[in-house]
Amino acid sequence: MAYNLKKELEKPERLAGGHRLCAGCGAGIAVRGVLRALEPEDKAVITNATGCLEVSTFIYPHTAYYDSYIHTAFANAAATCSGVEAAYNVLKKKGKVKEDFKFITFGGDGGTYDIGLQSLSGAMERGHDMVYVCYDNEAYMNTGIQRSSSTPRFADATTSPAGKVIPGKQQNKKNLTEIIAAHNVPYAAQTTFIGNFKDLHEKAHKAIYTHGPCFLNVLAPCPRGWRYETPEIAEICRLAVETCVWPLYEIVEGVWKLSYEPKKKLPVEEFLKKQGRFAHMFKKGNDWMIDEAQEYVDKQWDKLLAKCE
């Protein structure tokens, strides 16, 4: 069935307003977009790692979710979801639960790429019927913009500051989607907020409705941490995709598929220059940083193209 935004928006909302995420936060957009892919007749249990999303969407006594929700800690969202799913399997078998439930976990990049990677790997390996969604805003935003293994090279974060001697983060971004794909999960994909949300919606739908452990990596810009003009989130996402900094692709049963190929790949600086976290790269004498950033993106992009052939 072809994607129809109007139709999708007629579904009941699953993330309520009144949560306390920052104005213009990408996480809220990501969660709404993913949950919209649930069929209205299906119930869901949402698991959440500690992070911005968690501390903002369930402040006692106010939950922003229409579905059941559980948060336990930072490192263990996937394991917590594993427990919920295991309970569902046995209670369903025993006839104590009748309805169909879907299991969706949200974690930021800190809770996914870093502290939660072990439990995520475990859950993917064991094969629980769940979707793990990373809303990747490329740093520990909840604690005040500290670098994570998802923070790109040169980014100025509060624990990788751009100083007189060291120009921001020294390491490149970890390729988590590829790591998860190496678990041989039935479905893994990268997406972000593009156009009419077709890409995000279709990937979320596949992830939710593919049996087994699925993974969705959603680039979810953070205006505060990335230091861009808050209203410009759509443009930031578009540039991430058009420069191939954040390629859109999916891995379906081990087969790599590119979701979108820019007609003309934009230079990486188009993406970088809009963001305060990269401002030092544009200072006099720092051209080499942009060159190296471009070189890295090109190399990653070529590797991805080779995989997708």
Partner: peptide
């Protein structure tokens, strides 16, 4: 027995599984 056995990758996850399962009604 028909218990769901979840052989996790750490005790941290073992307790997390128990919390998730218990909250889910198991």
């Amino acid at each position: 027995v028909d218990t769901e056995f979840v052989p996790v990758e750490s005790e941290h996850s073992a307790m997390s599984v128990c919390i998730g399962a218990s909250a889910a009604g198991a």
